[in-house]
Design a protein around this nucleic acid. Structure first.
Length: 556
RNA sequence: UGCCCGAUAGUAUAAUGGUAGUACAACUGAUUUUGGUUCAGUUAGUCUAGGUUCGAACCCUGGUCGGGCAACCA
């Protein structure tokens, strides 16, 4: 097993080639560079697992750098959530850094470009500048300010910093090539005026570098060896390389991979922010959100998310991953770790007519059948009247129905085999009680009855049942690719959340621990919601169990 | 109709000039006190046309299709 050759992704191949050739003396330093303007989502997890994973694999390190060059959208709240999510995922950064730490250096870089005659202050309006850039098929034209002298540019740039100009009055542009086939090289803006309070530098600055002027140089300042980002930055790379060359600074190299897309969800921070602001969800950590905090609240574990990110692979091809793979990963983890408990979500009463009234028994159930020894056990009270799942009974069952129906037998999990004798209905024909007889010799663990039954169902003793709220989640969108819609919000799944106010659970579930996953036997994996209280426990369904019977039914 | 990136089973991802493999999904069957788990098996793929080569998913050329590229966003 250990000598199994795992295939490398294209970035690993590049790194291994670099190590072999002695580039950077074999040093590997990556970075994860979020902008603190929103919460991290599963797509960021892919990048985090990649960047931190690469560093770990090649004995390197990873910096956390906040790309905070736009004070208007950035907040400390986001910084804190991002740090928290990365730690929760199980990663440690080498250094916590901020692009705003480099503002003075970046300013000096800009001055250097001006001195070299390859940057100029432009007084044109945004519209004029856009027009001056031409189109992909037509070259741009210079604005009237392109040929200002170095001295004039130096003075004006200093004045921009001093605060005497209004927002938008002037910008600093790199002087590259207005006819370049790469639009990003047509004299890109590198500094703009924003009289805005920055979450870290306060009012110290009123000019801020553009992302394109900050990102590559920040990598360079930190001596990042492999700067990994998503595909949309491919056309920016020549610009970063140009800055590095002009400034003669450490040559970080950028490599681009395809971002994660998941079906039945949206993955852009802008769209997620809309869902939050327009109250389609409870917040960034709503369990239906693809955010790390949402997945955490939903009951996803760090290991399941890491496994998912490793399984989806890294390449340059556009991709849409099936949500089913994420679900597979969490089931795989929880199956091995979640303690089993019984809960009835949609109850109907079952009476065992030959079980003495007033009699109670304490039955035993192992916590986890996947582990030798079961990780201990808990007691389950049993009595004459039970709640069972309404869907576990059918008056006129189809073939291969292994549950309860008139005349049929099933086993009550951890208890006895019962036989359905009679059905009681109200005046509307709704079933109110199911009467059964039980077989005393069939008790779990000491069954001498010799009877074999096909089905086993879960149950909760009526007099011992505890009432909890259960929240059932489904995919947030009802179409595979909401972004392809004219209005993605129109395809929100109206049934993405079903709240069951009164579900019955076995008493031991009152001792459920926050952050721990429980399998409600035959129903799915659940975890305590962050809003749960001891007086009113609330469970979120993380994911259902695989259900081949439901598939069978659907097929007809 | 300028430039850039890409194209391998339903979805992802390997094979780096020499037997197209893996995972998820789907389907069979076995086991099972969860219609869960586990196990065994089945189905299913190199966008296209040329070229180079003993041999091409891989190299070259043309085409097709998909995605991206112009924000005082990142």
């Amino acid at each position: 097993m250990e000598n199994e050759e795992k295939s490398l992704n294209f970035i690993e191949e590049i790194i291994e080639a670099d190590i072999r050739s002695g580039k950077h003396d074999g040093r590997v330093l990556t970075r994860f560079p979020p902008e603190p303007n929103g919460y991290l989502h599963i797509g960021h997890a892919k990048s985090i697992v990649l960047n931190f994973g690469l560093a770990k694999k090649y004995n390197g390190k990873t910096n956390l750098r906040f790309d905070d060059t736009n004070p208007v959208t950035e907040e400390t709240e986001y910084v804190e959530s991002i740090k928290n999510d990365i730690k929760w995922l199980g990663f440690e950064w080498a250094e916590e850094l901020y692009t705003s730490d480099y503002f003075e250096t970046l300013y000096a870089y800009a001055v250097k470009l001006i001195e070299k005659g390859v940057a100029y202050v432009d007084d044109s309006s945004p519209e004029e500048i856009a027009a001056s850039k031409g189109t992909p098929t037509e070259p741009g034209k210079p604005t009237p300010y392109r040929d200002r002298t170095v001295e004039e540019n130096l003075l004006l740039f200093e004045e921009m910093r001093s605060g005497i100009y209004l927002d938008g009055a002037k910008v600093l542009r790199a002087k590259i090539d207005l006819a370049s086939p790469n639009m990003h090289l047509r004299d890109p803006l590198i500094y703009r005026i924003k009289h805005a309070n920055h979450h870290r530098t306060g009012d110290k600055w009123c000019i801020y570098p553009m992302y394109d002027f900050a990102h590559g140089q920040s990598d360079s300042i930190e001596n990042i060896t492999h700067s990994i980002c998503t595909l949309e930055f491919v056309p920016h790379r020549p610009l970063y390389d140009w800055f590095i060359e002009q400034l003669a600074i450490f040559p970080s190299k950028q490599y681009e991979f395809a971002r994660l897309n998941l079906n039945y969800t949206v993955m852009s921070k802008r769209k997620l922010l809309q869902l939050v602001n327009e109250k389609y969800v409870e917040g960034w950590n709503d369990p239906r959100m693809p955010t790390i905090s949402g997945l955490r609240r939903r009951g996803y574990t760090p290991v399941s998310i890491r496994n998912f990110c490793e399984r989806i692979g890294v390449a340059k091809r556009e991709n849409i991953i099936d949500l089913g793979l994420l679900e597979f990963c969490i089931r795989e983890d929880l199956n091995k770790t979640a303690w089993r408990r019984m809960a009835v979500l949609n109850p109907v009463k079952l009476v065992i007519t030959n079980y003495p009234e007033g009699k109670e028994e304490t039955l035993i159930g192992e916590n986890n059948p996947e582990v030798a020894g079961g990780e201990g056990e808990r007691s389950i009270p049993f009595s004459r009247e039970l709640w069972i799942e309404r869907e576990d009974f059918m008056e006129n069952p189809p073939k291969k129905f292994f549950r309860l129906a008139p005349g049929l037998m099933v086993r009550l999990k951890h208890a006895y085999i019962i036989k359905c004798e009679e059905v009681v209905k109200d005046e509307n024909g709704i079933i109110t009680e199911i009467h059964c007889s039980y077989i005393p010799e069939s008790k779990s663990g000491e069954d001498t009855s010799g009877i074999k039954v096909k089905g086993t169902i879960h149950w909760v003793s009526v007099s011992h049942a505890k009432t909890v709220e259960v929240r059932l989640y489904d995919r947030l969108f009802s179409v595979e690719n909401p972004v392809a819609m004219e209005n993605f919000k129109a395809s929100i799944n109206p049934d993405s959340l079903e709240i069951i106010e009164n579900a019955y659970v076995e008493p031991d579930l009152l001792h459920a621990e926050p952050g721990k996953g429980y399998q409600f036997i035959r129903k799915g994996y659940f975890t305590l919601d962050t809003k749960s209280t001891s007086s009113k426990p609330v469970f979120n369904r993380t994911v259902t169990l695989r259900d081949t019977w439901a598939k069978e039914i659907q097929k007809g």
